Computed example of a mutant assay.
Amino acid sequence: MSGVYYVYMKYVRETDTLRADYGRHLLTFRSRWDADELFRGLQALKTAAGASRFTKLQRVTSQFWCYDTVEGDPWWTIVYVQRENALPAFNYKFMSVILADAAAGRDWPVLANPTIGPDWVNGKTFYIRNHRQPNLYWYYDDSLIVISTSRRTKFLIKDSTYDEERVLIRSDKVTIEPTGSLGTSIGVYVTKNGDGNKLITSTTEQVWDFADLFDSVGVTWDDQSGFTSGTQFATSLPDLGDEWELC
């Protein structure tokens, strides 16, 4: 999850024709985690009067955000947020540059390393695959999570404390449900059955840190009754996990 991650940010007030000429920014982060956490931080920003500082903050994709803000100078809002240190936790996590406008004079950077795939939004369904070996997917089979190159299962990722739609960040508490179990009278949840043991499914709801889904699950080869010899299974490895991603 670490490296360099980019987001375009665009001013979109419909009653201001200058939205076509100004208010374009490129934000650079050390990771996608930091970008999503900044988005949540901007959503929560208030003015001195208690109003939302951003009157619109819309994720078109995970790397393209549109915004409007309270009266003042709307084109530089993200710059002012940094100058004021309005979100001090992000002082060392991102920077921004103003992109070319109608007056020109600034270069337009090329977006590097675009993220391909859906935004990680609460209450949506996703495939889970290996980040380094993207042909390896989670597959729900007979109460176990198999790592497969030929089959895959979608999983519902849901915040256990928040029902509305919003981007998920690493500290969120989530449940993971295979979609094949949705709509049944008894829910089925992916469960960590002790460190080093295979992931199982259970009717008992288990809450994960969203971040644990990405780096605390490993793979083990095992002979399991009912499965082909040497099948790969997902296993709980909080300190030695592989890297996973939602797609």
Rank of each mutant, 00 (worst) to 15 (best):
D34E: 13
D68N: 01
F29E: 06
T125M: 08
D239T: 15
M9I: 15
M95C: 15
P74R: 02
T231H: 04
A112D: 12
K198A: 10
G23A: 06
Q224H: 11
K93V: 05
T115L: 12
R19P: 00
N193Q: 11
K173P: 09
W108V: 15
N113E: 12
G3E: 05
L26Y: 08
R170A: 11
G187W: 04
Q82G: 11
S236T: 10
V110C: 13
V4Q: 12
S31W: 07
T28D: 08
V7H: 06
T15C: 03
S171W: 12
R106Q: 11
T191L: 08
T47R: 00
Y140L: 05
A100V: 14
R19G: 02
R132P: 01
L136R: 08
K198M: 15
T204K: 09
K158S: 11
R83G: 00
W76P: 05
L136D: 04
G123R: 07
S236H: 14
T77L: 08
I169L: 03
T28V: 14
W244L: 05
Y5M: 09
T184W: 06
Y92M: 14
D239P: 03
T231E: 05
F54G: 01
N85M: 10
K198V: 13
V70S: 01
T201G: 00
A20N: 15
E245I: 10
M1A: 13
Q206K: 08
Y8K: 15
Y22W: 08
T184M: 11
R166H: 10
K56N: 00
F210I: 05
S181N: 05
S216Y: 05
Y80N: 08
G41H: 09
A234R: 01
Q43V: 01
T125L: 04
D222N: 09
D209P: 01
I78H: 07
K173A: 12
R170G: 13
D34Y: 09
V217M: 06
R53K: 07
F227V: 06
F227I: 03
E164L: 12
Y11T: 03
K154G: 02
F126T: 05
N135H: 09
E71K: 00
G72N: 04
F64N: 10
S52P: 05
I169Y: 08
Y139F: 07
I169T: 12
T15Y: 04
V217H: 02
D101S: 10
N113A: 12
Y8L: 14
D159Q: 07
S202A: 06
K192F: 06
Y139M: 00
W244I: 04
S96C: 14
I169S: 07
T228H: 05
K198Q: 13
R83D: 11
T201S: 02
D239K: 12
G183H: 02
T77K: 08
P238I: 09
Y22L: 12
R24H: 13
W120M: 09
Y8D: 10
I145P: 01
K173E: 15
D36E: 15
S150M: 07
Y139H: 07
L99C: 13
L38G: 01
W221C: 10
L87D: 06
L18Q: 13
V121Q: 09
Y139V: 03
G50M: 00
Q63P: 06
L199F: 01
S181G: 06
M95T: 15
S225P: 09
V97E: 14
Y11G: 04
W108L: 15
D101E: 12
F214M: 02
G196C: 04
D141T: 05
A211V: 13
E205H: 04
L26P: 02
A49W: 00
